[in-house]
């Protein structure tokens, strides 16, 4: 194996181009390590985003060799042979180099009713949520989302319909639908219904395939389809 990695890195905004850098190969080297090496040693003008470096914050996701991945936990040695290609996430505006504008992604969390609506005031005692209850288990299945936008980038439906709320926002809505302390389901189910919401999902499961936390947003979206159908049938939330 060569001592260096040929790293093709996206430079500029939407009209940018790839620039190739030669980076020393190291043991247990992640894609984020490669990008950081370039920024620290070869070209300090390179822009990219990261924070925790340990797979918790969801900041460092990029398109690596054509697939969306979290770069801090993606080891170069485990990737396909050939040059390493790194671009910003798909389906989001490109700001500069490897930094994508995350605003549309998080705006859709708000549009999907992703805000917790308390059903009691601050004076109320702690809510008791039975860990084995069906609602709690359904919420647990989706709650570990780190907001990295890998699923949003992997979703073809987002590229076809820019209004589509996307897997992460719908997954967030599903966790709140199952939160017994929440009182916002009437508006939330309105928000997630229709061709920009859960009913547009083709269940192709690209989100599930690429989610670095091994979550299954497709299952959450299927849950929303059932919940909205129940609400529509009854005429209420």
């Amino acid at each position: 194996m060569a001592d260096t990695i040929d790293a093709r890195i996206w430079r500029g905004g939407a009209d940018g181009r790839f620039e190739t850098f030669s980076v020393p190969r190291r043991a247990s080297q992640t894609v984020l390590d490669v990008v950081t090496y370039i920024q620290r040693k070869l070209d300090p003008t390179l822009s990219y985003r990261f924070a925790c470096r340990v797979g918790m914050c969801g900041s460092c996701a990029m398109t690596v060799n054509g697939k969306p991945r979290w770069t801090c936990r993606t080891h170069v040695a485990r990737l396909e042979d050939g040059p390493l290609t790194v671009e910003p996430l798909r389906n989001l505006p490109r700001i500069k180099d490897l930094a994508a504008d995350m605003a549309p992604f998080f705006d859709k969390w708000a549009k999907a009713g992703g805000r917790f609506v308390p059903s009691t005031d601050a004076e109320a005692d702690f809510a008791i949520v039975e860990p084995a209850s069906a609602e709690r288990r359904a919420a647990d299945a989706g709650i570990e989302c780190i907001g990295c936008a890998v699923c949003y980038s992997a979703c073809d439906l987002v590229s076809w319909n820019p209004d589509y709320l996307g897997p992460a926002a719908l997954n967030r809505a599903w966790t709140l639908v199952n939160d017994v302390r929440d009182a916002g389901n009437a508006d939330r189910l309105d928000a997630v219904a229709g061709d920009a919401g859960c009913h547009a999902c083709h269940s192709q499961q690209s989100c599930r395939e690429h989610c670095p936390k091994s979550l299954n947003p497709t299952a959450s979206i299927a849950g929303l389809k059932r919940a909205t159908l129940r609400a529509a049938w009854k005429g209420g939330p």
């Binding site: 189910l189 009913h199 909205t228 609400a231």
Partner: peptide, 14 residues
């Protein structure tokens, strides 16, 4: 549910 959301959902169910 609002009319539009309800209609879209019922169409999906149908």
């Amino acid at each position: 549910m609002k009319l539009r959301a309800r209609a879209e959902t019922l169409l999906w169910g149908a």
